[in-house]
Design a protein around this nucleic acid. Structure first.
Lengths: 243, 243
DNA sequence: GAGCAAAATTGACGATCATCAACGACGATT
DNA sequence: AATCGTCGTTGATGATCGTCAATTTTGCTC
């Protein structure tokens, strides 16, 4: 399945270094050639694993399309979905930069395309492009602030409000707008993963979903969620912030 | 109170760039001179604020002694203690590097010494020392993994176990060993802050503390905590991991 | 030391949650 | 089509938590 980036398929890989969000943005010609040479594109089916917690790092990955989940596991079978990565996001760079094994697992949450950039290429790129290190730094800082936001919500919001917030985040990425103003989401995650992101059990998520249904603020059908009024849903949380 | 780092008081500032944990470790002579010139040492009393969430960044701070709490607030008066910083830790570097306002507040949790390094000095240092950027990157990655650990615990542990874990972390930093094998801690934080770190209300923390008392695994007297057997306390959590 | 404000504790109560269990739905495999 | 395992939902129950309130303790200022 893995194959080198020949010219005609570069249009897919290009996603990785366009857009200001990508760390590979705006590299010079030599660097771009170096990157293209050390990069391999691969398609992943839903549930396929990109890298596994505990494995030794062998370079970094760049999401080109789809959705990739960053997950942490323990020996008891507990699993927590820590982050979602989308096109343009570089993942697995932490263990690369610290020279350690992967501290998390990454798996495709749907059909996805992920490029792998081998160890030698990034090492060379980092040595020749000081700005690249700063980009990694800014990405890391962004993730850290995201994590702090999460910690703050975990400590201050109820489970219901945490789920509502999660839905509002997901609707921005995965939402489809309907003509009547409502929006629909194809959830990229299972109920169990929703539960781990909210910090509770899946049975509790089921029950909170039931209450959101009866309150009429969201309708669930499998992984399909329809939200009649995103504003009304957002109001549940805004009331806490403004009041 | 703020004063420049003249020679005779440099011994206090030196903490900031000795030890492998500090980002200022192992700078060359020119860089050290630059650092010394842009640095100002200041003592903070308990509760005094180092920088405030929302303020514009004006350089970075380096903890030279004492304990500094990194806190996030919202408009409703909610406060969550996100991190604790100790001698050698650099703080406030995130908003400096992203050029934004401070996303958190920092305050001395006891008598502390903190150096301030002004904007111009770090900018020059970063330009002349590419390795310094990588040190910031590694520090940021370390904090991020710390945050991920926290998120994982928030999602998998009970409040009691989260408090126990917190005590075990604090005993490593603040613990005093007694002759009979027990250890004591002078908690650097209030019960309210303990509660925010665990993700619950202060009344609940009071009650969990009461249960730890009756179970005989820890004794609380104000901010003094005595733990008869740290191993026994650690066993409460290890059982979950190994079993 | 008196006085005050914030912190901490304790009680009571309703709401929410974790757990165990049962069951149906679904997808993958054979 | 039948089987199996996982996922999702629902129910029942005891445990825990959040909230409001009253009270005590602590720490600080004057």
């Amino acid at each position: 399945m893995a194959q080198s980036c020949t010219k005609h398929e570069n249009h897919a890989c290009v996603v990785c270094h366009v857009g200001p969000r990508s760390v590979w943005h705006d590299l010079d010609e030599t660097a771009s050639a170096l990157l293209a040479g050390g990069r391999r594109r691969r398609e992943y089916g839903s549930g396929e694993v990109v890298f596994v917690q505990g494995e030794q790092n062998d370079g970094v990955h760049c999401v080109s399309g789809g959705t990739v989940g960053i997950r942490r596991l323990d020996d008891n079978g507990n699993s927590v979905l820590l982050e979602l990565a989308y096109a343009g996001d570089t993942i697995g760079y932490r263990s690369f930069l610290t020279g350690s094994e992967h501290k998390t697992s990454a798996e495709a949450l749907g059909p996805s395309v992920v490029c792998h950039i081998d160890r030698a290429a990034i090492t060379a790129l980092l040595a020749g492009n000081p700005a690249l290190g700063l980009r990694f730094l800014k990405r890391s800082i962004g993730e850290l602030e995201h994590a702090h936001d999460m910690m703050f919500r975990q400590a201050t919001l109820s489970n219901r409000h945490k789920l509502v917030h999660l839905l509002l985040v997901l609707v921005q990425r995965h939402g489809r707008r309907h003509s009547n103003g409502s929006q629909s989401i194809d959830l990229p995650v299972s109920r169990r993963d929703l539960a781990s992101m909210v910090g509770t059990r899946h049975e509790t998520i089921s029950r909170i979903i039931g209450r959101l249904e009866t309150d009429g603020v969201a309708h669930f059908s499998g992984r399909q969620v329809t939200i009649p009024s995103v504003e009304a849903l957002a109001g549940e949380i805004d009331r806490l912030i403004s009041a």
